[in-house]
Design a protein around this nucleic acid. Structure first.
Lengths: 339, 339
DNA sequence: TTGTATGCGTTATCAG
DNA sequence: CTGATAACGCATACAA
């Protein structure tokens, strides 16, 4: 029977070639690279030399197939254009990269259906674990996770059902900033909301509950738009708000972009901030500290969320249960000139 | 000899399981999924049913190993925090995803050494092709590409050495905006530059050449800082510029962020724009259209660059040569109120 | 500490 | 149009 040699991928250098060059067996090369302490220093050197000389690069596909571990983690986020998630990604990478894991980044564009498609597509890579944004996902989502026995950590929010999550209470944060505005003597506090994703709606719920408790809840002070937020939209919403309710004396914006756009429009219109109108944002992005007036907002531990979520996932992928199934990293009110 | 069953990855459903359930052979399943027209409609249906019933997800690792094609493209960009590259990524994905390719995104943080490390790391995935930002890379970079016979397309700029590239002339764009400022009667035109990557330096070169030709080049009108750009930095640089050269009558900022920060500072200081000081940016990001005053800038075809670069790469990965090795997508001056 | 035999899930090759 | 077989590159189990 004749051999059937096929086209080789990559540069064509395999572990066998390295082994031959180093005068050892293939498995010794494998160990020298993956568990160096199990190989004698002498052979380790010879292998390393051969690797360098031949320019050998291990094949992740072959490794994954043989070991049933892809050393890959799927990270699903709603947007790449939002600094919040970029910071989270940076935190994740700072933990996963040194541990030898690579990230597959999926951008769902704030769409549950797209998120499900992304999961389906990326499952072909057999990721060892999953980092998710938010708690609610499309119906078949959790079923898929279970079927594939995929460890998952939920980021940005806190669940009550035993799922492993790292975040803070969006609702409590919304309530806290609203209480602050109340403490400043404001009584007709409005809400500007864009995107209207899960987290924005929870901040809104916190706002509503706090005002209701004070007997000050007024649905006509809420301006909601499901389209993506932007500074431009903040400016437009401010116009709409002041037109509809000139007596409004404070605004809680669901994020800093909206708030900064609103602030800029106030400047143009000559609306006194915070005297006539106080403005608060959410997230504490960089411009919040130097816009005029500086912006009162809620600082969120997004990078740390990435770090701790990645650590918890590493734990679960090693077979262990997470130390704590639910990590509350809290938030911090940043009180500045706009309130 | 006893069998040695191992742990299975994923949900454990393999192509063989599907084949058994459908009453066909494994290879027929493979064909039904990848080359449907080569399988009779009847069997195709049976296979599809079995796939759905079992929740089968093909293994990319096994496929890559057997076919020597990973259906994966490595995209290396200098930053994820810059809208320019996010737009490019979106353009790329719009072409690669429908073609069945997945992107591996590497963020080099504007660092050639990191970029090289990323290439090394991602080569383990045996990408079928490469999309690169800019023309100059670390020394061993091109050697690695050749060794691995990796087709590559260079984005954002134009090369003269036969490399396949899709972009526009950064130098010519810098010259064009400078000529525009000259045409407005400005004579002491300054340059604010941050990051100082390859492309910023080319814009600077275009600026210098144009002014030199007019006999107006003055090195003391250049303010350069290698750290990452931001609106804050734009504001700070404006302060420095006006302090050192109060007679400066125009500023070409190497990007919109810097320009918008400078513009904001002008507002605060009461500097009349464009009368006393004209300001121009680069890229035409969203805020450029609605900041006060609106910003004169250079619109860059970044999304289209992604689209065409991806198309060219698909071509090369199919074995063909690119239609044109060098695609100049040009740029457009957006003349607004700030000049 | 090092080596041998074998299996991971898929596709290329070639035969029917 | 369909199927049997071998091969892809590496890691596990076990033996030496």
């Amino acid at each position: 029977m004749s051999r059937k040699p096929r086209i080789r991928s990559g540069s064509g250098v395999t572990m066998h070639d390295v082994a031959k060059a180093a005068g050892v067996s293939a498995i010794t090369v494998s160990r020298a690279l993956n568990q160096p302490q199990q190989v004698s220093p002498h052979l380790r050197d010879k292998v390393q030399q051969a690797v360098d000389a031949l320019g050998y690069v291990p094949s992740r596909s072959a490794s994954a197939l043989a070991s049933a571990r892809s050393r890959t983690v799927l990270v699903l986020i709603p947007s790449l254009g939002n600094t919040v998630f970029l910071d989270t990604l940076a935190g994740i990478e700072s933990i996963l990269a040194p541990a030898g894991y690579q990230m597959l980044i999926g951008n769902s564009h704030y769409d549950a259906e797209q998120e499900l498609q992304l999961l389906r597509a990326y499952l072909q890579h057999r990721p060892d674990g999953l980092l998710l944004t938010g708690l609610s996902h499309a119906a078949p989502f959790d079923a898929l996770l279970r079927q594939h026995a995929l460890p998952a950590v939920y980021m940005m929010d806190l669940a009550d059902d035993g799922r492993c999550c790292v975040g803070f209470s969006q609702e409590e944060a919304g309530a806290a900033i609203t209480r602050h505005l109340l403490s400043r003597g404001k009584r007709r506090i409005g809400f500007l909301g864009a995107q209207l994703d899960e987290r924005v709606l929870k901040r809104l719920a916190g706002y509503r509950a706090t005002l209701a408790e004070a007997g000050l809840h007024d649905p006509s002070l809420e301006w909601l738009d499901p389209s993506p937020s932007s500074m431009q939209m903040g400016a437009d919403m401010l116009d709409a708000a002041l037109r509809a309710r000139p007596d409004c004396d404070a605004l809680f914006c669901c994020n800093d972009d909206l708030a900064i756009g609103a602030l800029a429009r106030c400047q143009q219109l000559g609306v006194a901030v915070p005297q006539r109108l106080a403005v608060a944002g959410f997230n504490d992005l960089q411009p919040a500290t130097w816009c005029i007036p500086s912006l009162t907002t809620v600082a969120t531990p997004r990078r740390e969320i990435g770090v701790q979520a990645a650590r918890a996932l590493l734990n679960m992928m090693d077979g262990g249960m997470p130390d704590a199934p639910r990590v509350d990293l809290g938030f911090e009110l940043m009180l500045r000139r706009s309130s």
